[in-house]
């Protein structure tokens, strides 16, 4: 519900209020690379330059590497210690595409077994969305039925209408954040008109589109077409960029380290693009590159829809922007033959 607005010059004050109660995370640029990082209680220049992060906000819940437990050997055996994540955090500036992405991987980490590390961070996090008014040319969120100015997966949504941000609140947590502040103003009729304008303009700025309708069915019928996948994957160099920067890629690896009698178990991102990912001592079910490319495409657009009824690509465009060879997922989806002649299954 749209209730309040905040003047841009009061954002520092607003974040400052929140920062007293919990850790405020904002877009930050270090050596030219944009990610989400702890706010320094001062700098709000990101409001001028921020479009989206290179490293997706999933890294706030599933960091590129984290300690799962540390262990120490003593005379009675091993003593294990698990880090706690009890502090609250507010992530300011989450784009609607990434908010949807978080909701998608929430499912992965909560189904059947609760993943302590992910969920302990995620449940203590309030997401403050920021309408996307200056998307990249590689953005195609509207093709995944995402409105760049709307999200049902955030606690608060901020939309830039010029001098002010109009705020929509969606959850109790969001309302609580608003109640903490005394810098908010009432919205006017003119603001409501303005926000409609901004929303319409933002949607029309998304120029890249791809028809994802029936992509799952088309992929199903193409699944065993080796020639097709070999052709599609030819220029892929099997690096991990598209998967690591994807806000819905969640695969991880677990590794131990130990020096003398102390050590830790870590988990970190892993990628189905890597040949070593599925390698077993005697064989590797995805030794060939085309199988790995197929896995990535089908996992997003075929397997996820089968399990969740939604494709796992949110159209953030990171995989296209950062790909060393301009391997463009939208081209592949758009290029799927309408009526493939091959039957699905083996």
């Amino acid at each position: 519900m749209i209730t309040k607005k905040v003047s841009k010059k009061d954002i520092r004050k607003l974040l400052g209020t929140w920062n007293q109660e919990c850790n405020v995370i904002v877009p930050s640029r270090v050596d030219g690379v944009v990610g989400m990082a702890a706010w320094d209680n001062q700098d709000i220049s990101f409001l001028d330059w921020y479009r989206n992060t290179v490293i997706p906000p999933k890294s706030c819940f599933l960091p590129k590497s984290e300690v799962m437990m540390s262990f120490k050997k003593n005379e009675n055996g091993y003593n294990l210690e698990v880090p706690t994540n009890e502090h609250w955090q507010v992530i300011f500036g989450v784009r609607p595409c990434d908010a949807r992405a978080n909701a998608i991987i929430d499912h992965v980490f909560a189904v059947t077994y609760d993943d302590y590390y992910y969920i302990s961070k995620r449940r203590n996090t309030l997401l403050v969305g920021l309408s996307c008014t200056n998307p990249y040319d590689s953005c195609f969120c509207t093709s995944s039925n995402i409105d760049p100015t709307e999200s049902e997966y955030v606690d608060l949504m901020f939309t830039d209408i010029g001098d002010d941000f109009v705020i929509e609140d969606f959850t109790g947590g969001g309302k609580a954040l608003l109640n903490m502040s005394n810098t908010l103003k009432k919205v006017t009729k003119a603001d409501i008109d303005k926000i409609k304008e901004v929303k319409a303009a933002s949607v029309s700025k998304i120029k890249k589109t791809v028809d994802t309708e029936n992509a799952d069915r088309k992929l199903g019928s193409l699944f065993n077409d080796t020639d097709y996948w070999e052709r599609i994957s030819a220029k892929c160099i099997s690096c991990g960029i598209c998967t690591f920067l994807c806000p819905t890629c969640f695969c991880f690896d677990i590794n131990d380290e130990m020096i003398r009698k102390q050590g830790a178990r870590y988990r970190g991102w892993d990628s189905c693009s890597f040949r070593s990912y599925t390698r077993m001592p005697m064989e590797n079910p995805r030794e060939e590159k085309w199988r790995r490319v197929r896995q990535r495409v089908c996992h997003k657009f075929e397997f996820f829809p089968m399990n969740l009824g939604i494709n796992a690509c949110v159209g953030c465009g990171r995989c296209i922007r950062s790909c060393p060879v301009n391997w463009d997922i939208t081209q592949v989806i758009a290029g799927l033959p309408a009526e493939a002649g091959i039957k699905s299954g083996k």
Binding site: V30, D31, G35, S238, C239, G240, F244, W269, P324
Partner: peptide
Amino acid sequence: KQQFNRCIRCYACRQVCPACFCERCFVE
């Protein structure tokens, strides 16, 4: 230290490099 702190180990540097032709890289 600051530069390598943000390395995400995507191995794109190795994968694009024609001089990196080892069948199995030492990191694996």
